[in-house]
């Protein structure tokens, strides 16, 4: 009886995870976003527009502030290029450079690059139910199936109706909590539920974390293929 229910919960859990992926991942999306980074003396907001296809192609152009305007970032598979209009140069970031924080935020380039579907990486298990605000959530525990993942395990609070995560905790292999992401402003866009605000917090660091806000998200758009070429960076 016990085994059966564990089996069932694992099945449920993977189904839930698939539903989450269906909401969050898409073949193709275009969105504008703003990132608010709280520093020691001030906080600042950087806005950008991103085009993404699948999990391994994305192109981001920074729109403001003036110092970042025109900076572009191209990601193809495991490679990342940065372009700055000031220098008119395209620089490829590799290895260790990818571990640097993006624009001083609590996210590294690598964090941004690894957007494989949760269900591809993790095995899930339902471990409970909790209320977050007025939403009922199912708490899942995810454990990596693969070796090459940044976070060996996660706890993820999934809205029980909309199948959108409302809170996510990322753990080190040893079990230490490394990052916490809180989602809010869940809206329905083209038949998907999607959180428009995400707050990233590096749990080992002092600070208020980084707030990531999406606006104008659109799925399944016609994105010209040339956007994902190095030539497009210089445009």
């Amino acid at each position: 009886m016990f085994f059966f229910s564990a089996e069932l919960s694992a099945q449920n859990a993977s189904e839930i995870l698939l539903k989450v992926d269906r909401n969050l991942s898409s073949d193709n999306r275009v969105f504008e976003s703003s990132m608010t980074i709280s520093g020691k003396r001030n906080s600042r907001t950087i806005s950008s527009k991103t085009y993404a296809v699948g999990n391994n192609k994305s192109f981001t152009e920074y729109l403001s502030p003036a110092s970042e305007k025109g900076t572009k970032m191209l990601k193809l598979e495991k490679q990342l290029w940065l372009y700055s209009p000031g220098s008119d140069r395209t620089i490829q970031l590799s290895g260790h450079m990818l571990r640097q924080s993006v624009m001083g935020s609590d996210l590294s380039y690598e964090d941004m690059m690894d957007d494989r579907k949760l269900s591809e990486i993790y095995d899930a298990q339902v471990v409970g139910e909790e209320m977050i605000g007025d939403r009922k959530t199912i708490l899942l525990e995810l454990t990596a199936r693969l070796a090459d993942v940044a976070y060996h395990s996660q706890r993820i609070w999934v809205d029980a109706e909309r199948f959108v995560p409302l809170k996510q905790e990322l753990f080190a292999k040893g079990g230490k909590l490394l990052k916490r992401i809180e989602m809010a402003d869940v809206v329905k866009v083209q038949n998907r539920w999607f959180p428009l605000t995400m707050t990233y917090k590096d749990m080992l660091k002092q600070g208020d974390g980084t707030v990531f806000k999406l606006s104008n998200i659109e799925f399944d758009q016609a994105i010209p293929e040339y956007i994902f070429t190095k030539a497009a960076l210089k445009k």
């Binding site: 060996h152 990322l170 080190a172 040893g174």
Partner: peptide, 12 residues
Amino acid sequence: RWRDRFGSFDAA
């Protein structure tokens, strides 16, 4: 906080 050979974070 460090990474193992596969790049997974670990902390202790």
